[in-house]
């Protein structure tokens, strides 16, 4: 244990020598974590919001004739050929008529003289609710239009398309900020280590002559990277949480749409992000030590 104490003491000395750079690095690490997890959080929340719009996401195929029960498995198979779906419902003229009547409520007497034959039969297809499938809705709808007897396919086109583009954009941002996170933290951490090594050049030379072991010299620098990872990423995550609490308080006021019912990462996800950042900082310092140090 006394060795660990030594290493910590030495780390402390290093911090004292270059606290300016250390703070810069800490700042970069937390900012990168903040930016990355910010976009990730938006992405996660958009997907969750998409879930709430499930009705809008249903594709309705209007037909010129009813599908007889014997034919249903065949059509089902044909639909599934294009993509997995969550659910397929065949709606007969009669069912459609009943629904319509219910929707009209007390005005339903306008339908009294009419029969179910005024309603077109339809197939309601609920696609899988993930980005991959949602982004293909247009193609899916074109495909459904080629089903035998299909008159027209309807879905929340505009909304879905915009949603799809937006989600795609956010996804790209998440990926890019992830790359930024890796590059910025890796670079900054190794840059600080390099500065430390250069600043301590004379000291390292003497330590070498005194027969200091590699672990004596390197462990403090490794601890330095580890600490920057731990403090920096925790700070970044804490900032994001503060931001989230603030935003959630603003957006989910009474009467506002449930649409903006924000959720934060699960503790597991938050921990995973922090752990990955710590691993990156430590890795960055390890690479820098290998590269710049002769001991």
């Amino acid at each position: 244990m006394s060795r660990l104490k030594y290493h910590i003491k030495q780390t402390w000395r290093n911090l004292g020598q270059s606290w300016g750079t250390q703070i810069m690095t800490l700042f970069t690490v937390s900012l990168s974590v903040l930016i990355f997890s910010f976009f990730l959080l938006i992405y996660v929340n958009i997907l969750a919001a998409g879930d709430r719009f499930s009705d809008e996401l249903r594709l309705v195929v209007y037909l010129d004739h009813e599908v007889v029960p014997e034919m249903q498995p065949q059509i089902r198979k044909k639909i599934m050929d294009f993509s997995e779906v969550e659910n397929i419902v065949f709606v007969s003229r009669k069912e459609a008529f009943e629904r319509f009547r219910k929707q009209l409520g007390k005005n339903s007497d306008v339908l009294d003289d009419l029969g179910p034959e005024i309603m077109p039969p339809s197939i309601e297809v609920s696609p899988l609710r993930d980005l991959e499938h949602l982004s293909q809705l247009k193609e899916f709808s074109d495909y459904l239009a080629t089903l035998p007897g299909a008159l027209k396919v309807q879905y929340g086109q505009n909304w879905v398309e915009r949603f799809g583009h937006f989600t795609e954009l956010v996804r790209m941002t998440v990926i890019m900020s992830g790359v930024l996170l890796v590059m910025a933290t890796g670079f900054m951490v190794s840059y600080t280590i390099r500065l430390t090594v250069v600043a301590k050049d004379a000291e390292l030379e003497i330590l070498r002559l005194l027969g200091a072991s590699s672990s004596y010299v390197q462990t403090p620098l490794l601890i330095e990277g580890l600490m920057q990872g731990i403090i920096g990423s925790t700070l970044g995550m804490a900032l994001l949480y503060a931001l989230y609490t603030w935003a959630a308080g603003r957006l989910s006021g009474p009467g506002f749409l449930r649409l903006f019912d924000l959720t934060f990462f699960s503790p597991l996800t938050a921990c995973a992000i922090i752990l990955v950042s710590i691993a990156m900082c430590t890795g960055g310092s390890l690479i820098a030590i290998r590269k710049y140090m002769r001991i």
């Binding site: 030379e205 003497i206 002559l209």
Partner: peptide, 18 residues
């Protein structure tokens, strides 16, 4: 070499102190 150097105390002509 590290082990050996730990056993040697050398006072350098140019001191090599920090």
């Amino acid at each position: 070499i590290q082990e050996l150097r730990q056993q040697i105390g050398m006072a350098y002509q140019d001191f090599k102190i920090l």
